[in-house]
Design a binder for these strands. Structure first.
Length: 430
RNA sequence: GUGGGCGUAGCUCAGUUGGUUAGAGCGCCAGGUUGUGGCCCUGGAGGUCGGGGGUUCAAGUCCCCUCGCUCACCCCA
């Protein structure tokens, strides 16, 4: 089983991981920045938790009967003999941090975190991906569920995405779900032989997952299955109704789906999932979440309600690409210094420009003027600042526009920074 | 964990029934212009043909194994 990595494969990114190079990395940052601005506008603060935790955090939080914990988690024993796991999911870590530090309630936190799961990679699914998410603890009010869903929806819409949809469901709570599961088991036991093999085996451990099965045999067998929506207890029914009312009032379209059973054990009441219609792959879920009123207690805290979501950044980027929704041009340089007089000017000018808040780069290695001009052009800079022996003698710099048909002109060395700053302000006003 | 497809230059690919020193476009470097980018022209660098074994006078090409990538199932963002 244990295979050693040979020299060749040891020198590439591990299976299912990808380097994100410039300028793609800029798009990633742009998405993250939009998310930060949005959730901070709603009172959420950044929480940074470690990429690894004691294994128990995930085993207890997410539940043992789950592939993410059962067979996909990167687990290891560290040099002190501690059982650790790389974070496969965002919520458990954040809730653990809450339990450990007891910040005042309500506590509204957001995160951007790499998640690691030993899955078989495929289109739009990787062993390391990133999620942005929020978790709000200490509030049972359904209006907070509405706020959370609104934030996810608004994130997508302000990115410019159009082709996505929201499914909404309720998982009930400790008062009504056991009764429903008993009802469900009665129904499914009579049709056990019609289910797919996986779910015949899973009836004992997690019967509700059958509802989410895509196989035709399970679909057919659960055609007339009792719906949890029809068996919610009174408080759950009122909560669900208030959530629907709230998102409807905010103009968010949702499809009620009694088969929406999300993967983690901790969900209670509200669950939701956003899927993109633009992603040309089997994996098209953008993100999802819900309420988890029992999770804090499971992880050792006092009973505390919670609700949140996680959104896959890579999936959002794929959707943006498919819908041409995100600008792909990174910010360009303001100036590129071409120095054919020994390099002192390039050294000093770039330092001065950067200190003034301008973006500036230069060539090295005393390359030919032609080579330096090519680099200047390729850099995307607005102007080339040319310094040769003649300019040194005159104390000037040639400012040559690269993006427009305009003539170059000599500017006194000490006025270069001010000239470029003025030009940039002029552009911003235009 | 299961199944399908694919591995030739940094990238996208060609390579004819096995037959000389393995090619193109783009990109990169240099020159054409001894002070000027883009367009054009010329030249150059860059390849253990994923790796190993086998068949053969001869393997990028055929066979086996292996590694990797990729798509799908399971599951998940």
């Amino acid at each position: 089983m244990a295979q050693s990595t040979d020299d060749q494969q040891a020198l590439r990114a591990p299976t299912g991981t990808h380097d994100i190079l410039w300028p793609d990395s800029w798009r990633f940052e742009a998405v993250a920045d939009r998310f930060r601005a949005l959730v901070e506008s709603a009172g959420y603060g950044l929480v940074q938790s470690p990429v690894f935790e004691y294994t128990a955090v995930f085993r207890k939080g997410i539940g043992e009967d789950n592939d993410v914990v059962g067979r996909e988690m990167y687990e290891f024993v560290d040099r002190d003999g501690k059982m650790l796991a790389l974070r496969p999911e965002g919520t458990a870590s954040v809730v653990r941090a809450y339990v450990q530090h007891r910040p005042p309630l309500p506590w509204k936190a957001w995160y951007l975190a790499p998640l690691l799961r030993h899955e078989r990679p495929q289109a739009a699914r990787y062993r390391q991906h990133h999620q942005v998410g929020i978790e709000a603890l200490g509030v049972a009010d359904a209006d907070l569920d509405v706020e959370v869903i609104w934030l996810a929806n608004t994130f997508f819409s302000t990115l410019g995405l159009r082709d996505y949809s929201l499914r909404l469901g309720s998982m009930g709570d400790a008062a009504c779900r056991p009764d429903y599961i008993a009802l469900l088991l009665t129904y499914l036991d009579a049709r056990r032989d019609e289910l797919c093999p996986d779910h015949q085996a899973r009836l004992a451990t997690n019967p509700m997952r059958v509802l989410d099965c895509k196989r035709p045999e399970c679909r057919a067998a659960t055609e007339g299955v009792p719906r949890l929506f029809d068996h919610l207890c009174k408080p759950c029914r009122a909560h669900f109704a208030r959530v629907q009312e709230g998102i409807g009032a905010l103009g968010i379209a949702a499809t009620l789906d009694h088969r929406l059973v999300r993967g983690f054990d901790y969900y209670t009441r509200t669950t939701f999932e956003f899927a993109s219609g633009a992603i040309d792959a089997a994996q098209n879920a953008l993100g999802g979440g819900g309420r988890y009123d029992g999770l804090v207690e499971i992880l050792g805290g006092d009973p505390t309600p919670g609700v949140g979501f996680g959104i896959g950044v890579e999936r959002v980027l794929i959707a943006c690409e498919a819908e041409s929704a995100l600008p792909t041009a990174p910010p360009a340089l303001d100036a590129f210094v071409v120095d054919v007089a020994g390099g002192d000017a390039a050294r000093d000018l770039t330092a001065a420009l950067r200190l003034a808040g301008l973006r500036a780069d230069r060539a090295f290695d005393a390359r030919s003027m032609k080579a330096q001009m090519k680099l200047a052009d390729r850099s995307g800079a607005a102007v080339a600042l040319i310094v040769g022996p003649k300019e040194i003698a005159q104390g000037t710099v040639l400012v040559r526009p690269l993006r427009a048909e305009a003539t170059q002109r000599a500017v006194a060395r000490e006025n270069v920074v001010a000239t470029l700053l003025a030009a940039r302000v002029g552009e911003a006003d235009a």
